[in-house]
Computed example of a mutant assay.
Amino acid sequence: MHPSPLRRWRAVCVGTGKGWRGAADPARRPADTGRTAADGGQLTLGEQPLMVEAAAAGLGIALVFEGYAATALADGRVTRILADWCPAMPGLHLYYPSGRHLPLAMRLWIDHLRAALETCGDG
């Protein structure tokens, strides 16, 4: 499926309200169209789990990390579209200065990220 038909659908947006942007072949990618995959998106949320629930409720399409949508995909509440346009992301990478003494705040942040990713299935 080509992403062009998505312009007719509402989008569930994240944070700034930017619309869906595909990843494959930049020459065929739709332009960033503001709040939606077209112009009709009416919902902007700050967290991907909420975006999945909004999509499952029929409020629009959402682009989220697979781990956040895994349960909803498995039980059929949402459907994957445009899989060929979304690159595989095997995990997150965190770059930080190596040194003998890692600041406590950085250690806590790393531990938090690991726990959060394990919880959502990306760990």
Rank of each mutant, 00 (worst) to 15 (best):
M1W: 10
M1G: 13
M1Q: 12
P5I: 02
R8T: 10
R8M: 05
W9L: 14
W9P: 02
R10S: 08
V14T: 08
G15L: 11
G17S: 08
G17L: 02
K18V: 09
K18N: 09
G19R: 06
W20C: 05
A23S: 15
A27C: 00
R28Y: 06
R29K: 12
P30C: 00
A31C: 10
D32K: 09
D32C: 09
T33W: 02
G40E: 05
G41L: 00
G41V: 04
Q42F: 01
L43Y: 00
L45K: 05
E47R: 15
P49A: 07
L50C: 10
L50I: 04
E53D: 15
A54H: 03
A54I: 06
A55G: 05
A56L: 03
A57P: 01
A57M: 12
A57R: 15
G60W: 01
G60Q: 01
L63E: 08
A70I: 00
A70W: 04
A70K: 13
G76C: 04
R77P: 06
R77V: 04
V78H: 01
V78F: 04
A83S: 09
C86P: 00
C86R: 01
A88W: 07
A88R: 11
P90K: 03
P90N: 02
P90L: 01
P90V: 00
G91W: 07
G91P: 02
H93C: 13
H93D: 12
L94N: 05
L94S: 02
Y96W: 11
P97A: 14
S98R: 12
G99T: 02
R100I: 04
R100Q: 09
H101F: 09
L102Y: 02
P103L: 08
A105C: 04
M106R: 13
M106S: 11
R107P: 03
I110G: 07
I110W: 03
D111E: 15
R114L: 10
A115D: 10
E118G: 15
G121T: 08
D122H: 13
